[in-house]
Design a binder for these strands. Structure first.
Lengths: 358, 358
DNA sequence: AGCAAAATTTGAATCGATCCAACGAAAATG
DNA sequence: CATTTTCGTTGGATCGATTCAAATTTTGCT
């Protein structure tokens, strides 16, 4: 009881217990992986030896090399690891990825890193059968890294033009258009856009040229969808402020300050993510601006929090569960060919949007 | 451009490109792991060969065996994988574990499984340097499984008497006592307890004998803390209903139905988790019972949601971030000795508790 | 040129298992 | 009793890399 065998190291291998039990390593291996084919008497002897020597079962490290398959999929992002548990969209997506993995018995490895170098190393050394890549900031670099591993991988939400990478995303143009249409139908004509990043590490009002040079096609597409619809009803889109946030609370608030500093503040805000929209609701409420009477807000994503916010958020719902399922399927049943799928989105009307005053 | 090499399989190994480049595999290995020690001309030649043959870099599977360390920690639970992203407590804990891992560059593998057999296999074959075990339902079995791997591991929130397992938890008795004390100080004398599971797969009112036979010591300790304080002020604890939930919405609601069916319903509810407490707030509000005027509610855990509920929840905050950090540290710096740490908790008074009516 | 020191490269050994063809012994069959 | 089957066991080959002592080539110096 006082001194257990598990002192500090565990140099006890299968071969050791085979020797101790007086059998070949082949037989010892069988005792663990196919017990039914070894004679009971031998089996018990080997197991006893294993027990006595403090053997923890065949080391997966060894088994892995032979087996080839890890039976785990890697989920990668260029954000810190805690992004998976903090960000509402990521959480819902992860929950649906989890379900798909549970169903097939696959495990999940979280791969990420703050700095570039570490990220590269982590991706290169991840023990996985494939990657699902979250394309937020730094998405392109991440995709490049993942691609270099030559493992199956899909990018989530990537609207790159690069046809050589498999991707699962939504129809951003149609979705954004739907959001804008909802507001124009209500009668709004004064808008502001709170955008996701167009490129890395920049925030602030963006110009059309900057939009054209966007790294993130998804962001650009959403903007295209918004502006398409706005110009359809005659809004001068060159006057619509487009503020690029980092999809976090701080930059969103700065954006709102900027937008509402104008002489003619908008009556409707198009937010490219629910996260941005929810921060906006808070900010407006703190400013004593009533939503939806003073300002209407429409989000994008359809995270659960949007249903219980104050007021509940009108938003464009992505089929997150479906996307997760498809992504896992794409990895596990990878046939080597890249496929790009675009899923439809839904407008969910809640209480954060109404006709403008007057 | 049309036909890339990466057809379907990747039988291209380091040895292949070594041969192609006309160097030994030792040198080829160096090109990737210690490029600075190989002559530039050779380095370029090998890299070119790798590129030409579609080599994705040294396979971690091979490297792993030699290196010994995986550089990842496994987080295990007997719940489905999505538990990590759904449960508020788990999420906060995971966020703090993530941060600790990020800081040290370690990865995270999520290990879980719905059924028993699959769980055992997943734990046995997890490629990790150690486990952090979430002890909710099925905790004891899980701990047993993890222990068999003979890897460093810590149990979170486990109050087993088994001194041979490392555990990080809070002082449940003191915390519960604090919660009850807060309510008795306010003048409450009629209580009900909504408990976490005492054993697996059972819900309903529990008797003292059932409490004594609890599998989950943590649940029992919290109850002990509650009752200690209640009897101190003269409450007949044998009359206090203790309803065992499964820590989910459905069983909590059933518990509430049961509790409020009594002729003298409680004026204060002691909930053993914030999740239970939050569901309780909703249920009471749907029943038109005002919190805190008609009923006071005190939770346990201190998840972020508790701060923004309606009304904000009075609760016992666990130092979740600290626990996560300690758990990761225990795994990564494991010295083979098991340590059991008990952290202090804090009472956070918010708007869900007030003196009883009259 | 000659020789020691420094810089590179080599190839065998190792990490910890699984797989499988071949083999020996026991059981079934003629 | 000889011959086939069946069953269990053996040990070498393999998975894909890294490591390191020894061998080889280069460089530096007189």
């Amino acid at each position: 009881m006082a001194s257990l065998t598990a002192g500090n190291r565990r140099p006890v291998r299968l071969a050791d217990i085979a020797k101790a039990a007086g059998v070949s390593h082949g037989t010892a291996s069988n005792v663990f992986s196919r017990p039914e084919i070894v004679r009971e008497e031998v089996r018990e002897r080997v197991k006893a030896a294993a027990e006595a020597m403090g053997y923890g079962g065949p080391d997966p490290k060894g088994r892995l090399l032979r087996a080839g398959k890890v039976n785990a999929i890697g989920v990668a992002t260029a954000e810190p690891l805690s992004y998976f548990f903090d960000d509402p969209f990521a959480r819902v997506m992860m929950a649906s990825i989890s379900q798909a993995c549970d169903a097939t018995g696959a495990g999940i490895s979280l791969v990420s890193a703050a700095n570039n170098e570490q990220l590269a190393w982590n991706i290169q050394s991840a023990l996985v059968d494939g990657f699902i890549v979250f394309c937020i900031e730094g998405g392109s670099r991440l995709v490049e890294l993942a691609r270099e591993r030559k493992l199956p991988f899909v990018a989530l939400d990537l609207d790159s033009e690069d046809g050589a990478v498999a991707a699962i995303g939504v129809d951003n143009i149609a979705g954004a258009s739907l959001a804008a249409r909802h507001l124009t139908d209500l009668g709004h004509r004064r808008f502001a856009v709170l955008a996701l990043p167009f490129v890395d590490d920049r925030t602030g009002l963006v110009s059309p040229e900057q939009v054209r040079a966007a790294t993130y096609g998804g962001t650009r597409d959403r903007l295209t969808g918004y502006l398409q619809e706005l110009s359809r009803v005659g809004v001068d889109t060159s006057k619509v402020p487009v503020y690029e946030t980092a999809n976090d609370a701080a930059t969103t608030r700065t954006g709102l300050e900027t937008i509402f500093a104008a002489k003619e503040p908008p009556t409707a805000i198009l937010a490219m993510s629910d996260r941005i929209a929810l921060v906006t609701l808070e900010w407006l409420s703190a400013r004593k601006l009533n939503v939806p009477n003073d300002v209407s807000v429409v989000g994008f994503d359809g995270v659960p929090e949007a249903a219980v916010s104050e007021p509940p958020l009108t938003t464009i719902a992505q089929p997150i569960a479906e996307m997760g399922r498809l992504a896992v399927k794409a990895i596990l049943e990878s046939d080597g060919k890249v496929s790009r799928q675009q899923l439809p989105v839904d407008l969910i009307v809640r209480a954060s949007s109404a006709p403008p005053r007057g």
